[in-house]
């Protein structure tokens, strides 16, 4: 992505431990996604995108639902270039996201 996007969220205290664990798991899962991208494994990319779409917003991280939705659609179309764009965007999200709690 050419533009610098700031992923910043202020969430209810209910989410505190949940979101930290969720992001830790998503960082661990990212290797699997990169491997799928390198192997043009669209089935795995689609499943990961679908799960991201369903879970991201539920954890209050709405951008992840958007990224996951687009990743799932790109994988359904076997569009590797678009998948790469969304996977890069996802990496940027994981590297920059800041969450505070109220």
């Amino acid at each position: 992505m050419g533009l610098s996007v700031i992923y910043e969220y202020e969430l209810a205290s209910f989410y505190k431990e949940l979101v930290e664990e969720y992001l830790k798991n998503k960082n661990e899962e990212f290797e699997k996604l990169e491997r799928a991208m390198n192997e043009s494994d669209f089935t795995t990319i689609k499943i990961i995108g679908h799960n991201l779409a369903g879970t991201g917003g539920s954890y209050g991280l709405t951008s992840l639902t958007d990224i996951g939705d687009r990743m799932e659609s790109s994988a359904e179309e076997s569009n590797l270039e678009e998948c790469k764009n969304q996977i890069n965007e996802y990496r940027q999200f994981l590297d920059t996201v800041k969450v505070s709690y109220k």
Binding site: L18, E21, Y22, N25, N51, G54, T55, S58, Y59
Partner: peptide, 11 residues
Amino acid sequence: DEKAIQILAKM
């Protein structure tokens, strides 16, 4: 099947 949903929805 998705652990993240299981944990969040159960809580």
